[in-house]
């Protein structure tokens, strides 16, 4: 999701100004000159200033030099596979799976939810069915054992309570 510096800089100007305005509106502490508004106002104004500098291309030269240096040393390993515009939406799968986890884990329990998340993530990353199924079965059980049994994290049982609960 590469955007131009003009776009990200303008966004930061807007965000900074909104922050400074919202900070300015915070209620002061009675009898005290300095309150909770000072820090957000200063931070917001600085963000807006940085956004303006970025939009005008200040500092871009440093970035180009660093990228060229990294590429020359073989450290660049982020060649994106080009397969059409929709293909890039795959990046949203991991955060999407986390949201799915939040929505269903209390209803169906940790083991089934984690199995679905692991299976979908593995499949999306190109795993064969055998590997994806193996990960979906073993990873949730292993993680449940460590976090529930050893670390006492209260993971919901749902449909599939584990024997060590």
């Amino acid at each position: 999701m590469k955007l131009s510096d003009r776009v990200t800089g303008t966004f930061l100007v807007g965000l900074g100004l909104v922050t400074a305005y919202a900070g300015h509106k915070l209620p002061p502490v009675p009898g005290q000159q300095i309150g909770p508004e000072v820090f957000p106002v200063v931070t917001g104004l600085c963000i807006a200033l940085c956004g303006a500098l970025i939009a005008f291309g200040i500092g871009a030269k440093f970035e180009e030099e660093a990228e060229a240096d990294l590429a020359a040393h073989g450290g660049e390993n982020i060649a994106v596979v080009e397969r059409g515009p929709l293909y890039k939406l795959r990046v949203l799968i991991p955060p999407g799976l986390l949201v799915f986890y939040v929505l269903v884990v209390d209803r169906i329990g940790f083991i089934p939810t984690a199995a679905i998340v692991a299976f979908l993530a593995a499949t999306a990353l190109g795993a064969r069915l055998k590997l994806a199924a193996g990960v979906a079965i073993l990873a949730p059980i292993g993680i449940h054992l460590i976090f529930y049994k050893l670390l006492r994290v209260p993971l919901p049982d749902g449909f599939l309570p584990m024997p060590w609960r």
Partner: peptide, 28 residues
Amino acid sequence: PRSGIMPIIVLCCAVGSFATGNSLFAVL
């Protein structure tokens, strides 16, 4: 295989962040 490791990391992210305060908001 990376496709076997990354799903475990996603699960560790979910459970690990939940463990910080037993709140699903941390996962979000």
